[in-house]
Design a protein around this nucleic acid. Structure first.
Length: 503
RNA sequence: GGCCCGCUAGCUCAAUGGUAGAGCAAUUGACUCUUAAUCAAUAGGUUCUCGGUUCGACCCCGAGGCGGGUCACCA
């Protein structure tokens, strides 16, 4: 490609002027990409020092020789004086570059473009207009930028570009930056929360030979030297329970799982869950764990366990205790269907159609119940709610209730009409567990449903060695972050959401 | 996958089927307290792609791409 081929392209024109400045720097013997710059202050700290001085808390010397680095987000030329906005992690501060102070270095100012990373040395002061600023005595180019930034005032609004080039979103939209920070803080809170309760954090394989532990279609891949198909895990469940068999008693994994299904505002093909397992407790303890974890995370990152969504939703209060609804009663109340007497799929389908629910003609009993829940019950559960006690048929990994063989000790947590967590008293009877898996395998063939859970022999052998009574939890981190940052789409809480590639 | 909407300068947005424009960014010049700096001038376009209708298409029609919404499915 020759230079003349693109000489008329606007983008090239913009890059060319920056390259021109870059070359001028090189001609001056200046490295446009030096390795280090030692900072004394963040932008925020500099302002604080100034305020401390003004309150007479500190002596004036603290203001001298302040060194700050960051990205240039604004340049206001004033002839022999130029104001430059410098943005770092903590915020933005103004630098005042005066010719009579910088002398020959002042020529460098003309070679600074919007988007460059620069380091400045100088004295903190306040301008006549009251703006905290650095009076620059030395200026260093730390990184020359070759491409223009999005418009300072309107920011980056193009949704697609925000996702594909998230770094631009982070630079120009504070809300995107703050959401990413908050996600990190939430994950950090959860780790501390679990560790303080004596849980061990573990890591189990992402590549598995049987994608088991949940209902989902897996991604498949291939290991060359093993000459074998492998799958990306759809859940961390079974390996974690093997660790309970191994005596770890309290374990959790914060990890990415992968499901080969549709993509929309609630679903990314890879997402993060926390699964935890604790020996010698049942699902009642897990309900308390969820209440404390979620309300604690809210208080930690938002300073409150309440969230105001306004409009018809209003205030969501995450503080314990959450409402507990019996699943069967909830379904009956919201849809009029009482599944307890309905064993045949055709009868259930008829009842559902009577209630105005669209039924897939090839659906299993369990998936139909699931459909009733998501269509008729979930949308009503804005305030945090546990739906408790699920049919055994739709809960192949959960233990039966003591006096009711058809019901399992399982709950799901809902907030804002969306599922947040799924938990049960874990099934540790190896004979029952094997039968449940075999039924799932049979149903998968009968209904040709790729999403039904799979039998993993290794897991069954582990349980046959004896798994203590255990309470287990799975909670969607992305959903939790959406809730606590009030984002309506998962793409706003995942830094690099999956998008189609542009060829 | 069905249906609906969007795609125009680096960014944000205009433009009855009749010469594609503005603000910011860029380039050149003036300016030592500005902060969306100001002022003057200049330059910048495969209107997502391909095809069709038309004397003439950003605009109408068809196919495709990408994105958004919604329904179906899923966490």
């Amino acid at each position: 490609m020759s230079d003349t081929a693109n000489i008329n392209s606007d983008e090239d024109r913009l890059i060319r002027s920056r390259k021109n400045n870059l070359n001028q720097l090189i001609d001056l013997g200046i490295d446009p990409y030096p390795k280090v710059f030692s900072r004394t202050h963040s932008a925020e700290e500099a302002v604080k020092d100034l305020e401390d001085l003004e309150k007479s808390k500190k002596s004036e010397e603290i203001l001298d020789n302040t060194r700050i680095a960051g990205r240039v987000t604004g340049i206001r030329g004033q002839g022999k004086m130029v104001f430059v906005d410098i943005k770092d992690r903590s915020g933005t501060i103004q630098a005042a570059m005066k010719k009579d102070i910088l002398e020959e270095t002042f020529n460098l100012v003309n070679l600074v473009d919007l988007g460059d990373i620069i380091g400045i040395t100088g004295k903190i002061f306040r301008t006549r207009r009251g703006e905290p600023s650095i009076e620059v005595s030395d200026l260093q180019i730390l990184t020359k930028s070759m491409r223009p930034l999005p418009d300072k005032w309107s920011g980056l609004k193009d949704v697609e570009k925000r996702y594909r080039q998230r770094y631009l979103d982070l630079i120009s939209n504070d809300d995107a930056f703050n959401t990413a920070v908050k996600r990190s803080e939430i994950v950090s809170f959860i780790r501390n929360f679990m560790n303080q309760r004596g849980y061990l954090e573990v890591e189990t394989p992402v590549l598995v030979s049987v994608p088991a532990g949940a209902n989902a279609k897996p991604f498949s891949t291939r290991h060359n030297s093993l000459d074998r198909d492998l799958y990306l895990r759809i859940a961390t469940e079974l390996n974690l329970k093997k660790l309970i068999v191994g005596g770890m008693e309290k374990v959790y994994e914060l990890g990415r799982v992968f499901r080969n299904e549709g993509i929309d505002h609630n679903h990314n093909p890879e997402f993060t869950t926390i699964e935890s397992y604790e020996a010698y407790v049942d699902y009642n303890s897990i309900m308390e764990l969820v209440e404390q974890l979620v309300s604690g995370a809210a208080e930690s990152v938002n300073g409150s366990s309440k969230l105001d969504f306004g409009g018809s939703i209003g205030m969501i209060d995450l503080s314990p205790p959450w409402t507990r609804l019996d699943l069967r009663e909830a379904i009956k109340d919201f849809s009029g269907v009482d599944f307890i007497d309905i064993e045949s799929e055709t009868e259930l389908a008829d009842k559902m159609r009577e209630s105005g629910i669209h039924v897939d003609p090839n659906a299993s009993w369990a998936s139909m119940i699931d459909k009733i829940i998501s269509d008729k019950v979930e949308p009503n559960l804005n305030q945090p709610t546990f739906l408790v006690d699920y049919p055994v048929k739709m809960s192949p990994l959960a233990k039966r209730k003591t006096n009711d063989d058809n019901t399992a000790e399982r709950f799901e947590a809902f907030v804002l009409g969306s599922e947040l967590a799924n938990a049960f008293t874990e099934l540790n009877d190896p004979i029952d567990q094997r039968e449940r898996f075999e039924e799932q395998e049979a149903l998968r063939k009968e209904f040709n449903d790729e999403e039904l859970d799979r039998l993993e022999e290794d897991f069954l052998v582990a349980v046959e060695h004896g798994m203590p009574p255990t309470g287990g939890l799975g909670l969607g981190i992305d959903r939790l972050v959406m809730l606590l940052t009030k984002k309506l789409t998962i793409r706003d809480v995942v830094l690099f959401p999956q998008l189609k590639s542009i060829d």
